[in-house]
Amino acid sequence: MTDAALANAEKPRRDWTRGLLRDPRAALGVALVLLAVILAIGAPLIAPFDPETPDFGAILSPPSAEHWFGTDDLGRDVLSRIIFGARASIVVGVLSVAGALVVGAAAGLAAGFFGRWTDAVIMRVMDVLFAFPSILLALAITAVLGPSLQNAILAIAVVNLPVFARIARAQTMVVRELEYVDAQRALGFGPWAILLRTVAPNIAAPLIVQGSLLFASAIITESYLSFLGLGVQPPAPTWGSMLRNAIGFLDMGPWLAWFPGLAIFLVVLGFNLLGDGLRDRFDPRETR
């Protein structure tokens, strides 16, 4: 690309980021997501108590000035556990979606660009992965590999692979036929050079939009896995495992059920608002 073309390519991008923040829903989404990220990164500085240290003098105490969100059955501060719990949600959400995006996009690019048997093999594998309800597949993978942070990330990434692969393939098949790709072929560029330099950047936008929407479902899936005891293992706090624990104390400590769920809800809402906003920017056909 020439310098002039680069300058032109930069311009609309700046426009849509500004437009995105002017949309009040997307701005709220960005704020909620940023809040979660700040809590996750700054947890040790922000949390008023240690999230894993029991305090047997303050078991199941309701929300108060000292413990804003109350304490759990071991006297641990619920607010601090929620702040530290943001880490598992954000880490699993970001890494699983990023992993699925990179691998899925690569697979879809190869399938769409090379066609023939490459396409057939890759897409049949994706079809099979798509033939499982996502929670069930994630459950089965973590059940077989054992519950841990890494395996939760791996499971959620595998579940999301076919989504990215299908989008990347469809986009690649469109871009492949465009004149500037023909031009590059005529100029003597090899297939890999064309794939990486020309096709990949041109299919990025829909993948990024889909990625932002999948953060929401990845975080919900992570909370399901830890709710079932198949995510990050105790005593490290996760929002899902806090809710699992809350079920045993619904009559004595209902606040244990309120706050972790609210945290999941707000973060997922944030990602959904952000994803909706991004989709509106990129896809003018979607009417609101």
């Binding site: 929401a216 919900i220 909370s223 399901y224 709710f227 809710l243 809350a246 079920i247 619904l250 009559d251 209902p254 059920a257 309120w258 972790p260 769920g261 999941i264 809800f265 997922v268 809402l269 959904n272 608002l273 909706d276």
Partner: peptide
Amino acid sequence: LCGLSLPSFWLGILLILLFSVQIPLLPA
């Protein structure tokens, strides 16, 4: 949009809390 963002097990727990624990109307 809120419904889409609500983790279903949390909604379930809240419903149990409301209709089985606070107001004992339905079996949990």
